[in-house]
Simulated scan of single mutants.
Amino acid sequence: MGFSLSPLAQQNGFRMEAFDTVGSTNAVALERAQAGDPGRLWVVSKKQESGRGRRGRAWATSHGNLAASLLLTGTFELKTAATLGFVAGLSLADALDAVCPQGAVSLGVDGIGSSVSDLRVELKWPNDLLANKAKLAGILLESTHLPDGRFAVVVGIGVNVVAYPEDVPYPATSLKQLGAACDAETLFLALSDAWQENSRIWDEGRGLAEIRKRWLKRAAGIGSEVAVRVDGSVLRGIFETIDEDCRFVIRDNDGERVKIAAGDVHFGAVASASAG
């Protein structure tokens, strides 16, 4: 089975460029934008060799994982475009709900079985997706100005379908590890479909309040202790919510309510071990 777009995505004018192996789907999408592509283009691959994560971190994927980048062009504000990460997270979570089979069993390293029907998918601010508290996917937004005065934004989505990195300072997992019999092509088909509904609700930022409401229903760590690394310093407190602009809101140790626009978030034991 090869990659394909959902019928609804095709009806709405979305296109796709698929690779078996690629350096970076985000880089290809940005190149297409500079070459005059009108947008609504998905660039997808089952292997990414030189991808990028947040803050310039390397993000390579094993063959069989999903790397998908969506190129969009427009005139809306960059601040508004930044909230597309929340649209992407919701769309991926909805896609996983659609394709993960119920009742499949995975045996962990301790020999204990876990059922996919018990899978807990959560969204971790700003742009990660967790499955049973371990990182399953990451999202990276990049943008560029175009010669005609518009700008392009690329929504990059990387999912650990068959393998996950083991040399990272946080728990990670893959769909295979969780017992889900789903391949990259099946997941992308569902993702391209789920994007249609969530982007319709988002409506170039006009529906952000509803996106925020939906995101909070899937949010990881609300009410728990958190440490946020911001520009070399660490803020600690309790994660309360995200505000109307999707900023991270914590109640710090002095009882003050702090709003954070960008930072690395760590919960619980990982907060103590990794963010200090």
Rank of each mutant, 00 (worst) to 15 (best):
S199N: 14
V121I: 12
V228C: 11
F239P: 06
P165V: 02
A209G: 14
S114T: 14
I222M: 14
A220P: 00
A181E: 10
R212S: 07
K217W: 06
V230M: 00
S199A: 11
L107F: 14
A220R: 07
Q177R: 11
V154A: 05
A209C: 09
P147F: 08
L129V: 12
E122A: 15
A152Y: 02
A220M: 01
E185I: 13
K213D: 14
V121R: 07
G207A: 03
L235C: 08
K124Y: 09
V234I: 03
L191G: 01
L119I: 05
T144C: 11
E210N: 11
D203L: 08
I242A: 09
D118K: 13
S199L: 12
T144W: 06
Y164I: 01
C182W: 03
A227H: 12
E166M: 08
F151P: 12
V161H: 04
S106Y: 04
I242T: 13
V226M: 01
W215Y: 14
G221A: 06
D110S: 08
R236A: 06
V109F: 13
E210P: 06
D231R: 15
K135Q: 08
Q196S: 05
W195H: 15
R120M: 05
K217A: 14
D110C: 02
V109C: 13
A180K: 03
T173Q: 00
I201R: 05
V226P: 04
L146A: 03
L141R: 09
C182I: 15
L119D: 12
S199M: 04
I139Q: 07
V234Y: 06
A181W: 01
D148G: 09
V168I: 03
D128P: 09
I238M: 09
R229F: 00
E185Y: 12
E210D: 11
D183I: 13
E185W: 09
L129K: 12
I242R: 06
V121T: 08
S199C: 09
L141F: 04
G158F: 01
W215C: 03
L140I: 07
L107M: 15
P169C: 02
S224H: 15
S192F: 02
N132V: 00
G149I: 06
P165Q: 04
R236K: 13
